[in-house]
Amino acid sequence: MSTKDKATVGEDQHGIESEDTETVGKPLLAAEKSRMTCRNVFVYYGEKMAIDNISLDIGKNEVLSMIGPSGCGKSTFLRCLNRMNDTIDICRVDGDIKLDNQDIYDQKLDVVPLRARVGMVFQKPNPFPKSIYDNIAYGPRIHGMVDSKTDTDEVVETSLKRAGLWEEVKDRLDAPGTGLSGGQQQRLCIARAIAVNPEVILMDEPCSALDPIATAKIEELIDELREEFTIAIVTHSMQQAARVSQRTAYFHMGKLIEVGKTNKIFTMPSHQLTEDYITGRFG
């Protein structure tokens, strides 16, 4: 299901016909409720179109999950939200993405403060090859948010506590972050992200490299974090989407097919493609 031709030629019922390209559900929110707004976003990798006209809002203090078959563009879309795609030379983004009514692709806007406001957690835990303490302190330090050692200590402690890792590592803050287990590493990365106190946290399949117990801990953590942060999470697991998110967006072949309340999407999907996907007919 990775190329366009396959789908349009091979499986008629899954091909998107022209009248279906309109996103089903409620992609847009009321202005006062939304944190990030995306309008008519296109993304190209060289000649290839990866995201095809997506409009979607992410609300305040909500967890929005993005699901869909691999190669559907959900990760690409996520990476647009804090301009991580900038690091890829051939990638081009068109359209309007706003954070609190500020265009993040504005020429004048700097990515550095943007990324301080929109943090990200990656598929594979990627702690820096430094101590646990320095991993957390890195963000606050570069952004000049802490002035003294006590400040830093406080930030490290609160971040680790919020990520639920404090009890496990408080005695070995000087140990290298790479020495932790996979789940701990991922929570360390989450702690690292929230240490900067961002408004939005993007998570790109944060549990795909983890075992079920570690996954459960992370999911629990996401639920807690919702109180303070807006979270957009890309996931492969529909169960996970169902457990952690309030709204779910279904992507297919670079298009946004359906957005809605999570329980509605999983119980009564409106679009044929969504239904096929969640019932496991493909994906």
Partner: peptide
């Protein structure tokens, strides 16, 4: 991934290079 981690925190290129 190491680079991405630093960039995602809002580190500049030189900070990423020097510190990570």
């Amino acid at each position: 991934a190491m680079r991405d981690g630093a960039y995602a925190l809002g580190a500049t290129r030189s900070e990423t290079v020097r510190q990570v």
